[in-house]
Structure formats: structure tokens, C-alpha cells
Design a binder for these strands. Structure first.
Lengths: 229, 229
DNA sequence: CTAATTTAAGGTTAATTTTACATTTTAATT
DNA sequence: AATTAAAATGTAAAATTAACCTTAAATTAG
């Protein structure tokens, strides 16, 4: 490794898979690229990492610049490094996913972005680069994470009904769950706070609203409690 | 993204956490670096990725060059990209882990490597770069993977006793397991083949030898069977 | 204002899985 | 022949999971 300079010719990027839950469906945020390469293609929000920029922070910056979304915790999923994945040179990319609440679902287009859209995951067609593969890997990460950690709440409004929570799980896992058993399981964990409030304006019996109690979860998790759906 | 050339100034590396199981302990393979940076430090086997080299294949090449190990399936774990993690410039690294059988435990030193050693994970001290952090992340990945996939067998000789398997699990998980329950659980999965052979030369009742049946596992896994310890 | 519609809420039983636990067997060694 | 060391094995209680249906509360339509 005497002369190392020939190695310092790569670029690095981040790509973000932003999941939302809307109209009973899991959606992802995609942008229509305003510049080459892949100008006019739909793509995951992603961009190159600056030379003096921390990788994980870069994911947050890129997401913010392209979509306006801010303060969204992002999880690293996997790094993609086939030789020819980027037409401009050697670019290795790290994929991140994030879960956002419906309140954040009004995403705007920005510079470098012609259009931005929420697309149900089963309607995604060909994306730029290797973004279809990246999406699949994030989806599969989400499916396993949702079963073992209390992250589903991040996709729902602060207060939600148990039915909404169940539909969310059904949408992500692609299975249908027994209503009574689901409720029993979730409520028995004692990580939901009953706000004593009900839905309003629905044409049927209004449901109670619950809220995830992160403090309580943290406390019992330290005592060895394992979240499991 | 009009001029993109300023981005193409990074290097990329891979670092390998190679786990072995020996004398009842989980060990990792470390090398004493023969060149700067961190000359003379113990480190994970790792090196820079060539400009025209696939990332995942690079991990295999680097491992082979530094340790002589070959044909070891490697799993990507995580990518580390703080700004100052490498003294020579901006180097982002991807960590991989692999599990090797005792037969592969005679690792040799090579060029660029002064020494090579298997070190029990609880005896690891200060490593080069951010390798202690990388090791921790691989360890935690191993602990969760071992519970959900039949990978423990990769750390044992082809034929092994149930006690050896149990000790392996106990070493990785750091808990002790009930002998009868462990055997019942493992055998009820029907993924072990009883070779009709027993240990020889032990000063006590010799144990039966078993072998992991990858075909059988694959078949039932497709039918929805989930490996779980 | 009555009936129809729609979703919310809730408990019991059987089946399955998990946990806890102690004795006998088989080889080598002394 | 006695000792030592680990292997092998089954059962009962407890906990968890799975299956299953009726009544309640709101809006809307007639």
C-alpha cells in the first residue's frame, strides 16, 4: 500500500427509501429526476456524499434537500457496490430507510427534482439505477423490523385506533390478522396509552384512540421485554 | 450536479470479522499490520477496494490475500463512514462477517501482515481504525442471526455432537441452555442427520455425531418453516 | 324517527409450545 | 472392580397461541 492515491477516485452516495402509510397502503416517496443521469426517470431520493460529510448525516441532508423532510430518523440497510451501477463512474451507495407519519406526507418538489410522489409499493415500476433492488432490500428489512421492534407507530399519527394499527401490520406483512388476538397481544404489552378520546365524525361506532408510550417501552425493554408481533 | 468530478475523490474499503469456535470460545481472526497507517497495530483483516472491483467480491479477495482463507461466504453487515476514520483520506468501509470451521483455523501470515492470530472475543483490546466498533456491530449481528438461521453449523466440523452445538450457542448467546430442551428443539426440526457414528477415544460415554442436512432445511424452509432457537 | 349500515369492542376454550427438572447409560481410567 | 465423566432420555405444569361470534355505538338513507 505504498502509493494509495489511485484508490481515491470513487464517489459515494446515499439512497433513501421513505415509507409512509396512507389509504391503507404502504407507499414510498419517489422523485422524478431533473438532471442526468437518468433524467426523467423515477428514482429513490438519493445523491452523492460530500467529501467532508459523515455518511449517516449525509442521508439526512440529501433527504431534506430533495424532499423537504426533516428530523426523520434513518436506518442504514445495506450498501450496493457493483461496478457498473452508476454511469458517471464508480459510485458505491448506501441505502437507508425511514418511516414517516401521514402529517409529513405533503412532500414538495425542489431543485433537481421535477416531481415528487407517494407511490404504493405494489405499483412501483422501473426506477433509475439499481433502485428497484435497493427498494426490495429495504422492504424486506422493514418487514422483519416491524415484527421485532415497536416502529409501526412511526407510520401512524400520534393518536391512532387499534384497527388502524392492525391494518398497518397487515399491509406490511401481507397477511391478515385475527382482530381479537391482535388487540389482546398489543394491549397486553402495556406500551399503549389510552387517551380517553374517541374518533369523531365516523359513520359507525367510534374507536378509542391510543398513543405509543415510548418511555414505558424503554423501561420494560431494559428489563428484557421483547416486542414481538 | 453539473460538475461531479470533485466527488470522485474517495476510497472504499472492506473489513472482515471472521468468527471461529475453538476451545469452547468464539474467536476472531486479527492481523498485526505490517504497514502504515497503524503499522504494528492489531486490526481486522481489511483493505481498499479496487476501482473496478465489485464490493462484495472485494471482501472475499481481501480476506484471501491477507489470511489465505478462501471460499468463505461473507455477509455484509454495515457501512462506516465517519469523516476522520482513516488517516490517509476519506475512506468509507463496509464490514462483513463470516463463520469458518475449525478446519480452516490454521491461518497463515502473508505479505503486508506481520502476524495473524485467533483471539477470543472477550480478550480483544484496542484495534486499529474504528475496528472495535465494527467488531461490536458484527458481534451483535451474529447474535441475532444465530437465533434465526441455521448458521451455527458453519462454525463446527461437518460432524458434531449435540453437546458441541449447545456449547456453541451458549458461547455466542452468553446464556446457558437446558440440555434436554435444547436437544428436543433441535431434533424436532428434523434438519440433522444422525450419521450412526459415535465419538471415539473420549473418557466417557461417546456421543452420537450429527450432520446438518442443508437440503432438508431448504425444502422445509420453502414450506414456511422458521428456524428458531 | 326508524331501519340499515358500518366498524368497534370484548372472552373462552382447545391446542400447542415452553419450561423445569433427575436418573440411567456407556465408555475410559485407576 | 470401582471411579469418573459426559451422554441420553420423558413427563407434568405453565404459558402462549389460535380459533371463533355477538353486542355496541355512531352515521346515513328512507
Amino acid at each position: 500500500m505504498s502509493d494509495v492515491s489511485s484508490f481515491f477516485k470513487m464517489a459515494f452516495s446515499v439512497d433513501c427509501v421513505i415509507f409512509g402509510f396512507d389509504e391503507g397502503k404502504i407507499k414510498i416517496l419517489i422523485i422524478k429526476r431533473g438532471e442526468d443521469p437518468f433524467k426523467g426517470f423515477w428514482a429513490l431520493p438519493g445523491n452523492l456524499v460530500y467529501l467532508d460529510e459523515d455518511l449517516n448525516l449525509s442521508a439526512k441532508r440529501v433527504l431534506h434537500e430533495l424532499t423537504g423532510l426533516q428530523n426523520v430518523p434513518m436506518q442504514q440497510v445495506s450498501t450496493f457496490g457493483t461496478i457498473d451501477r452508476h454511469p458517471l463512474g464508480r459510485v458505491i451507495t448506501t441505502a437507508y430507510y425511514a418511516l414517516v407519519k401521514p402529517a409529513a406526507l405533503h412532500a414538495y418538489a425542489s431543485s433537481h427534482v421535477e416531481q415528487i410522489a407517494w407511490l404504493p409499493i405494489d405499483e412501483v415500476e422501473e426506477l433509475a439505477f439499481d433502485h428497484n433492488i435497493i427498494l426490495e432490500s429495504c422492504l424486506s428489512k422493514l418487514r422483519s423490523a416491524i415484527k421485532n421492534r415497536p416502529i409501526g407507530f412511526d407510520l401512524l399519527p400520534k393518536q391512532f385506533t387499534l384497527s388502524a394499527l392492525q391494518k398497518l401490520y397487515e399491509a406490511i406483512l401481507g397477511t391478515s390478522l385475527d382482530k381479537r388476538n391482535f388487540r389482546k397481544k398489543i394491549l397486553s404489552m402495556e406500551i399503549l396509552e389510552d387517551k380517553g378520546v374517541t374518533q369523531e365524525g365516523v359513520a359507525h361506532r367510534p374507536a378509542k384512540l391510543f398513543q405509543f408510550d415510548a418511555e414505558k417501552y424503554k423501561a420494560i425493554a431494559e428489563d428484557g421485554f421483547l416486542f414481538q408481533i
